[in-house]
């Protein structure tokens, strides 16, 4: 970098700084008012008390967080973490070979496959979840077909179960896993894979000793990108889950709109946000140092 004396540098850099803040300000203000401020309100409400008829009494208390220790909430949090973790794992297992396959295709076909992966990702999530209801419900497509093929005599209970929720999560977020994995695998010099092979590595060693370490940032990115929305999922458990498949997202919605316990709902939201933020820290820690320092002057 070219370090010019401060006396010369000060005036142009000062001008460009004020110009950039002028451009930034409206957008920054918008995000601050309609994202940061609301989060601050949630935090404030999570530290207040519930009024008798559902309102918020501005009396400081940590009771809401203490209430979260109740086994019922613990179970729902645990179940959410479990389902989100399982969905992440399944996406990784299914997504890695898929991403690897795409990354090794000729460039034109790569582009086609990537578009095919991205299309569901931008297709209405509600509708895609509904498609599984249509397939899985008692009178649904799968049961109808299986009965007509005489493979089963009575319809199976497929919908409204944890398995259905898991399926819905994997289905919904698989593209989030494939895209960063693809980006990471595509960057690997093919000669490295050949080198491992030339040096007597079998398929498993190649995967464990070369592919995984080299794609670690992509793996972490994919896992975080699947885990975060899975953990906060609302529609999937709401539509595909049974009475016992409630996840944190549903619990929050329930506390707000049904039980009208805003302080408790807010405390739940804050805890959910903290889990999300900590998984993001893991993500940043796993990124290669060059990428992290790129923002530096």
């Amino acid at each position: 970098m070219n370090h010019s004396p401060p006396s010369i540098a000060s005036s142009p850099s000062g001008r460009s700084c004020s110009k950039s803040s002028g451009l930034l300000l409206p957008g920054l203000l918008w995000t601050t008012v309609f994202c940061l401020l609301p989060i601050a309100v949630v935090l404030a409400v999570s530290l207040a008390t519930r009024g008798t008829y559902g309102g918020v009494l501005w009396e400081f208390s940590l009771d809401n967080y203490r209430d979260l220790l109740h086994p019922l909430y613990g179970r729902i949090f645990g179940q959410s973490l479990l389902l989100a973790g399982a969905a992440t794992g399944l996406c990784l297992v299914l997504g890695f070979p898929l991403a690897y396959y795409i990354a090794r295709l000729p460039p034109r076909r790569q582009a086609l496959w990537l578009v095919l992966i991205m299309i569901p990702f931008w297709t209405n999530f509600l509708v895609r979840t509904y498609a599984w209801m249509f397939i899985l419900r008692t009178e649904g497509l799968l049961n109808t077909v299986l009965i007509q093929l005489h493979l089963i005599s009575a319809p199976l209970d497929l919908l409204y179960s944890n398995q259905a929720v898991l399926l819905g999560l994997v289905y919904g977020y698989l593209p989030f896993m494939v895209l960063p994995l693809y980006a990471a695998i595509e960057r690997i010099d093919p000669a490295l894979i050949e080198a491992a092979w030339d040096l007597y590595a079998d398929r498993w060693s190649l995967f464990r000793r070369v592919l995984i370490p080299l794609t670690k940032p992509g793996i972490v990115a994919g896992c975080v990108l699947v885990f975060i929305p899975s953990l906060g999922a609302y529609l999937t458990p709401d539509l595909l889950g049974g009475a016992r498949s409630m996840m944190v997202g549903n619990l929050i919605q329930h506390e707000y709109l049904v039980a009208r316990d805003w302080p408790l709902g807010s405390a739940l939201s804050i805890v959910l946000m903290l889990i999300v933020m900590s998984s993001l820290l893991w993500y940043f820690a796993a990124q290669p140092p060059q990428a992290r320092e790129r923002g530096e002057p």
Binding site: C35, P38, I39, V41, V42, I228, P229, L231, G232, Y234, V248, G249, I252, Q253, Y256, G265, S266, S269, L272, M273, V276
Partner: peptide
């Protein structure tokens, strides 16, 4: 941010 959190906030 989880979408539910965004909505609630």
């Amino acid at each position: 941010l989880p979408e539910v959190m965004m909505g609630v906030a």
